[in-house]
Design a protein around this nucleic acid. Structure first.
Lengths: 336, 336
DNA sequence: TAGCTTCGCCGAACCGGTTCGACACAGCCG
DNA sequence: CGGCTGTGTCGAACCGGTTCGGCGAAGCTA
C-alpha cells in the first residue's frame, strides 16, 4: 500500500504517481485517471512520516500549554477547541504539549525532533522563556498572550489592562467607592503570569484615577478558595461594595461567600470581571463581565501562524482584542 | 544537524551513532562517550519523521473527539488534560482530531496517513461507526465510553446506568415521589450518545422499581436551556420535588430556574446527578452528585492503549467505573 | 526531411534515520 | 602457529515519499 505499489498497478513510475497526485507537474489526463482509479480502489493514502521527511513539513502545529497541576480553566478549553478546528480547516493537525518551561522534555520533543512546523503558546508570562527561546531560534510561533516586550512579536492577546480598568470604571460610575480585586493564585502572579499582572495593573491605575479605596487579593483557582477569599475581603473591609475578578474558577465560591454573608447581588454588592461567557452565564445572577472571546482568539492565532508559515519573512503581526463589557445582572448602583 | 554530521565529527559511521544512542547493540565505552560528547555539544536530536519512517512507529496517539459545534463540557477538558499528561509520561505525544464520523477527513488523516500508533475515542455512541471501523481494521484503540456491544472491546467507561439509578434511589430514600430527569440535548440522544441512553435507562428502571412518578426531558448544553427546561418541569408537574441530571452545562440554568420559581434548594427541591466535581462545587448549594472521575479515566485510557500497543495480541481489557455519590448540599428530605 | 520545441514520463538521488550482514581484529585455546 | 569465538565497527539496503534532470516521441516549421 505504498506509492510503489500504486505505480506498479498503474503501469507507471513512482514519480509519475507523485506528480499526478500533487499536481506539481502536468500529467496526461489519461494516466492521471488510471492512477486515480488504482488509488481509489486501494484506498491509498500517502504516509505522513515519509512525506514529512521528504519535504521537511509535518503539516502539524504544536499547542503548548502548562501541565494540569494547576486546574484547567474553561477558557483554555475554548482555546483548544477553536485552535483544533481552525487548524483542521487549514489542513493542519494539532499536537498537544503540556510544557511549562523551555527545557521541558515535551517541549524539546516538539522542537528538537521537528514534530511540528510551528507552535501556538498558551498561558504566556511577561518574561516568557519559551517565547524567548522560540524567538531566538526564529521558530515560527504565535503567542496567545502578550509578553512584556511583545511589540516585535507574533501574538493574539487580550488587553487585560484596559479590561480591568473598564470594570473599575463601570463600578465607579455606579457609585462604588470601596472595591476589591480578586486575582489568580499568588504563585501565578509571582511567576509573571501576564493576565494577572496586567489586570492588576489596570485595576490599580484606574482605581487611583477614580480615587477609589481598594484592596487586592490572590485567590486559588477553585470555588473553596473563592469563598475563603470573599470572607477575607469582608473581614478586611466590611464596607466593600464591589469586586473585580479574573478568576473564573473561583467565581462560584465568591458568590457563595456573598450569600453566606447575607449580601445580595447586585443589591448589596456588585461583581464584575473578565471571564469566559460560559461562566458568566452559569452563575446567578449572571455576571456582568468582559467576555473573553476565547474561540475567536484561537482562530486568530491559527490564522496568524498559518500566515507566518506561508511567508517566513513576513513582518510580525498581532491582534490585541478589547471586548466590551456585557451588561448582565451582577452589578448595580452602590447603596441601592 | 543530522546523524551523518554527528558521525563525521565523532569519526565513526552513521550506524554506530544510531547504536550508541539506542543501545540496541553494544558499543565500546570509549566511542560511546565520544559520540555522546558531540551530541551534547551540538544539541542533536533525531528527527521524529525520519525515525517514524524507518521503524514504523510515530510515538504519537490520536485523541478523537467531536467538533466543537456542540459546546465542550468541563469533563472533556479534564479528559484531554489527563490524557496528554499520562501520554507524556509514557513518551507519547497526543494528536487532537475533531472527528465526528469515520469518513471524516481529519479521521482519515490520522489513520490513512499513519500519523498515530493508536487512538483514544471520546464521546462514544452506542452504535459507533468510528469504533466499529477501528475494530474492523484491528487498529489499536481505546474508547472512553462503552458501545452497545462492548464486551469484546478495549474501553474505560462509566456505568451510567448504575449511577443514574443510584441518584434515583438517593432521592427515593429521602422520600421524593415525583422527580424529573434532565438529559443531554435531544440530538445527542437521537444519535445514540452513550451516557444519555444508559443514564435515561438507569433512571427509568430505578424509578419504576421504586414506584416513582417521573418525567424525562432533553435539555440544551447551556444555562439558558437549563432554565427553560426547569420552567417546563414545574409547568408540567408543579408537584415535582427533585431532579437528576447528566447535563453539567445546564446546571447553572436549572438552579436559576428554581430560584426564579421560588423553590429553595434543598428545602423545597432536591437536585442531583452525574457531573464533574468542578461543576458540582461551583454551584450553590454544592451539588450532591456522582462525580465523574474524568482525570482518572483519561489516565486509565492511556495506560490501556499503551499496553495494547506493547502487546498487539493481548486480549481486550477495560475498566468500568462506578464512582460513589458525593453527599454535598443540594438534596434533602421531601416536604421538609 | 532535418531541426527545434513541447509534452509526458522515467530513473536516480535525496530526506534522516534504523537494521542486517559482514568483516577486521584481539584474545584464547589446542 | 592455525583456527575459533567474540567484540566493535562499517557499508549498504531500506522505510515511502518528493524532486530534478533528462530523454524519447509527437508536432511544428522551414
Amino acid at each position: 500500500m505504498n506509492i510503489g505499489e500504486i505505480a506498479r498497478r498503474a503501469g507507471v513510475s513512482r514519480s509519475t504517481v507523485s506528480y499526478a497526485l500533487s499536481g506539481k507537474r502536468p500529467v496526461s489526463e489519461d494516466t492521471r485517471r488510471r492512477i486515480q482509479q488504482v488509488v481509489d480502489e486501494l484506498g491509498y493514502q500517502p504516509s505522513a512520516s515519509a512525506r514529512a521527511l521528504a519535504n521537511g513539513r509535518t503539516s502539524t502545529i504544536g499547542l503548548v500549554f502548562p501541565p494540569a497541576g494547576n486546574h484547567y480553566t474553561g477558557m483554555q478549553l475554548d482555546f483548544i477547541g477553536s485552535v483544533v478546528e481552525a487548524a483542521a480547516a487549514c489542513d493542519y493537525d494539532v499536537l498537544l504539549s503540556p510544557s511549562g518551561v523551555d527545557s521541558d522534555r515535551s517541549f524539546q520533543r516538539l522542537l528538537g525532533e521537528r514534530r511540528v512546523d510551528g507552535a501556538i503558546l498558551m498561558e504566556i508570562r511577561l518574561e516568557d522563556d519559551r517565547a524567548d527561546h522560540l524567538a531566538r531560534l526564529g521558530f515560527p510561533s504565535v503567542a496567545i498572550g502578550r509578553t512584556a516586550h511583545a511589540e516585535d512579536g507574533w501574538f493574539v492577546g487580550l488587553d487585560h489592562t484596559a479590561l480591568a480598568a473598564a470594570c473599575v470604571h463601570h463600578l465607579a460610575d455606579l457609585g462604588h467607592r470601596r472595591i476589591a480585586f480578586v486575582n489568580r493564585p499568588e504563585q501565578l502572579l509571582r511567576s509573571g503570569y501576564e493576565s494577572a499582572h496586567r489586570g492588576l495593573d489596570g485595576f490599580t491605575k484606574a482605581a487611583a484615577e477614580r480615587g477609589l479605596t481598594v484592596r487586592t487579593y490572590c485567590c486559588g483557582d477553585d470555588p473553596a478558595s473563592g469563598q475563603a477569599c470573599l470572607e477575607r475581603i469582608l473581614h478586611d473591609d466590611p464596607a466593600t461594595t464591589g469586586l473585580v475578578t479574573l478568576n473564573e474558577a473561583a467565581l462560584g465560591g465568591l458568590y457563595r461567600g456573598l450569600a453566606h454573608a447575607g449580601r445580595h447581588v447586585p443589591r448589596d454588592f456588585s461583581v464584575t470581571g473578565v471571564v469566559a461567557n460560559r461562566w458568566a452565564e452559569t452563575v446567578t445572577p449572571q455576571l456582568t463581565a468582559a467576555d473573553v472571546p476565547a474561540a475567536e482568539m484561537g482562530r486568530l492565532a491559527v490564522d496568524l501562524l498559518v500566515e507566518r508559515l506561508g511567508r517566513p519573512e513576513a513582518p510580525p503581526r498581532h491582534h490585541l482584542l478589547v471586548p466590551p463589557i456585557s451588561l448582565r445582572a451582577s452589578t448595580g448602583p452602590a447603596g441601592a
